[in-house]
C-alpha cells in the first residue's frame, strides 16, 4: 500500500510522482493538458508568499496553481523520477 501525499503539501525543492488527479472535470482536463498525468514527475519550485499560488514544474512546463487546486493532485513521494519522460530539473535552493 502506497502512502499518498497531496501536491499542495510538498515543500519547495521536493519532488514526487503523480499517482492520481482528482477534481471537477474542467479542472482535470486543464491539468491533463498542462501535463498532470499519473506517472509524471513533478517538482515544487516555490510557494507564493501569503499562502499564494504554488510554482510547480512538470518536465519543461512550469505551472502556477493555487493550493486548493493542487490538493486534488496526489503523489507517491520518491527520490527518483523513474517513469517520467522528461525528468524535471532540481531547483537550486
Amino acid at each position: 500500500m502506497t502512502v499518498r501525499l497531496p501536491l499542495s503539501e510538498l515543500a519547495p525543492g521536493d519532488r514526487g510522482v503523480i499517482a492520481a488527479v482528482d477534481g471537477p472535470e474542467g479542472l482535470r482536463k486543464r491539468l491533463a493538458a498542462l501535463g498532470f498525468r499519473a506517472g509524471r514527475a513533478v517538482v515544487m519550485m516555490r510557494r507564493g508568499s501569503l499562502c499564494g499560488p504554488l510554482h510547480v514544474r512538470l518536465g519543461t512546463t512550469d505551472v502556477a496553481l493555487r493550493p486548493a487546486e493542487a490538493a486534488g493532485v496526489s503523489l507517491r513521494p520518491t527520490e527518483t523520477a523513474g517513469v517520467s519522460l522528461l525528468p524535471a530539473v532540481a531547483p537550486a535552493t
Binding site: L31, D62, V63
Partner: peptide, 9 residues
Amino acid sequence: EPFVIELPP
C-alpha cells in the same frame, strides 16, 4: 474558478 496558469520561460 480554478487558477491554473502556465509560466512560460
